[in-house]
Design a protein around this nucleic acid. Structure first.
Lengths: 337, 337
DNA sequence: GTTAGCACTCGACATGCCTAAGTGCTAACC
DNA sequence: GGTTAGCACTTAGGCATGTCGAGTGCTAAC
């Protein structure tokens, strides 16, 4: 029994199953792919593959379907990255033009990716570690509530309402604003926490408490804002591939709605040497995604922000991986220098 | 054949069908509801109701189910608003506490509403017509791209990237910023277009073009920003009531994803004397929502922003309407003075 | 206007049967 | 040893058939 042929058989099974979404048997296999052996031989190979936990039979006398482990092997060792079609290239190219706003670019990207892959696409907002403080604004909303706005020179705007704990007259707030702005303008966001300390220290004792509250708020803005938001598209594609989620797409929708879950998931996906990371079925930390796979990769200057696709375990990995990778590259190019 | 009893029969059919999601027949009807007549009489009434297009039979010998028109009559004339359970009241009360950010409040509201109704909840961002300009910031992103940020005294922050059409040195931009800010600070947002005209006019001719571009951008921010955003929750509930969407929930998900569609839909729903507006099945302008109903109402000072629920035509209207109304009231109270 | 009764229709379900697909195993083959 | 052919066995799925129950519409009587 030759080892390479066994892998070839697994590859054929995965490809056929992805294509037909039906268990694939030994005979159909030798017909569709011209392996030079008979179906009986394939049967032996398949039995071996089943022993290794790479494929499984839904019931006696049906064909085999790949297991999560089988997909994993397929993705890691067998599949070749499929080149994109010219039409797809063109669609991605079109993104380059007329790109204005960050929001705008991400929105179009995520829609495009959803359309290319016929699945749910997710894009995380880029992390702007090198950004510097451009402007700080405090707005008095109610006697004790202050809206803090932080504008970075990259164009990112973050806001948050802060409870300063005591009544603060308008003039006092204005004074604090000039103080903060004067000291912090141009500070890189990741250096903000330290700088904030000295600003607070420099405040007169009477203003110390509200200044402290504001500083905490700004710090939270600078750090937590990093990767907390995401945008997605193509949820309707889930419904089309309804069959692929035996139970229901409910849990998947829940996961998508709980953005925290998705963000954690994306962040946890370690960088892969081949550039695209895949998380298959039960490998996913979230139980609702036990029948889903996520294909993701980083983009942007240091590839910390993620872009990815979510679909059924039974997905066309080579094509999806190619699309994700291509989109990430173009995205990096657009957002780059 | 008595007219009031006919309505009573329609009511019973709607209620039973909503409860059991199965066509309801004459015999079951007289058993469950103690109407004082026999099933044969009910059959006559049902035949009449069918002639009027209020109910229909899926096939020859099944019970009847309400049509869109039947639901409409039910909602308009028959149903009584169901009081909320104490638990529900308590859940809504809890919203009042710890309410900080506008984003925060809306997020919690929409989740709560989704949970209360077991359906998809939608909340439109409130329209802030009385807001005034608090601050304007221009950030140079690239040689010709400027990020404009508009901060209102209500705490609303809007941003947009503007192409000024020509290279603009940093100093020139700073000069424009002081000019704009000086002239516009404190201007009500709805008076912004006029004020912008005079600001542009006051600019030296050399700066006229970029100033014009910036003014257009700000104007767009002030007007379009009004009600363009919404937040939603509970899409997973769609999957649970999968059966209720005979074809697929795909089109519904598409409609939800295309926020423009939903925003139009919500805006178009005229105010109803009873406080809650209902749009049933094919009454919806969007074809993908032909099997869905939307229950919505306004909230906030002038009730222009909408909060609502989307679910299958076969939904528990009285309860849903009560929940929407209650949530809208509490929301108004929180955001009010 | 209401009721009882009856013939009729139709979906849902069970049963039995058959076929196609596929497996595992054994014995022969190279 | 690896490969093949052949065969007995299993099972899902399609199909025809029969039965049952729910429900309707209609007519005649109350």
């Amino acid at each position: 029994m030759s080892e390479p042929r066994k892998l070839e058989v697994l590859r054929a099974i995965v490809e056929d199953y992805v294509h037909s979404r039906e268990p694939v048997g030994s005979k159909a296999l030798v017909e569709r792919h011209h392996l030079g052996v008979s179906s009986a031989t394939i049967r032996n190979d398949m039995a071996a593959l089943e022993d290794e936990g790479l494929i499984t039979a839904p019931h006696t006398s049906a064909g085999r379907i790949p297991t999560d482990k089988g997909y994993r092997l397929f993705v890691d060792q067998i599949s070749a990255v499929k080149p994109l079609s010219p039409a797809e290239r063109r669609a991605i190219q079109a993104l380059l033009e007329g790109s204005d706003d960050l929001d705008d670019v991400l929105d179009r990207t995520v829609r495009l990716l959803a359309q290319l892959t016929n699945q749910v696409a997710v894009v995380q907002y880029p992390h702007l570690s090198r950004a510097k403080v451009r402007h700080i604004e405090f707005v008095l909303l109610a006697p004790r509530k202050v809206l803090a706005v932080l504008i970075a020179d990259t164009g990112k705007v973050e806001q948050r309402v802060i409870d300063v704990g005591e009544d603060l007259p308008e003039e006092a707030l204005a004074e604090l604003r000039t103080r903060f702005l004067g000291a912090l303008s141009g500070t890189p966001l990741n250096a903000l926490p330290q700088s904030l300390l000295s600003v607070v220290a420099s405040c007169p004792p009477a203003r110390r408490n509200p200044a402290q509250a504001l500083a905490r708020g700004l710090e939270a803005l600078a750090t937590s804002s990093r990767e907390e938001r995401m945008v997605m598209a193509g949820t309707a594609n889930l419904a089309r591939s309804n069959v692929d989620f035996p139970l229901s797409i409910g849990p998947v929708l829940e996961a998508l709605e709980e953005q925290v879950v998705m963000l954690r998931l994306l962040s946890d996906m370690a960088a892969d040497p081949r550039g695209v990371t895949v998380s298959i079925g039960r490998e996913n930390p979230y139980v609702g995604l036990a029948e889903a796979s996520v294909v993701a990769t980083g983009y942007g200057p240091d590839a910390t922000a993620k872009v990815g696709v979510l679909g059924p375990t039974r997905m066309d990995y080579p094509t999806t991986m190619a699309a994700v990778r291509a989109v990430a590259r173009y995205l990096s190019r657009i957002l780059g220098p």
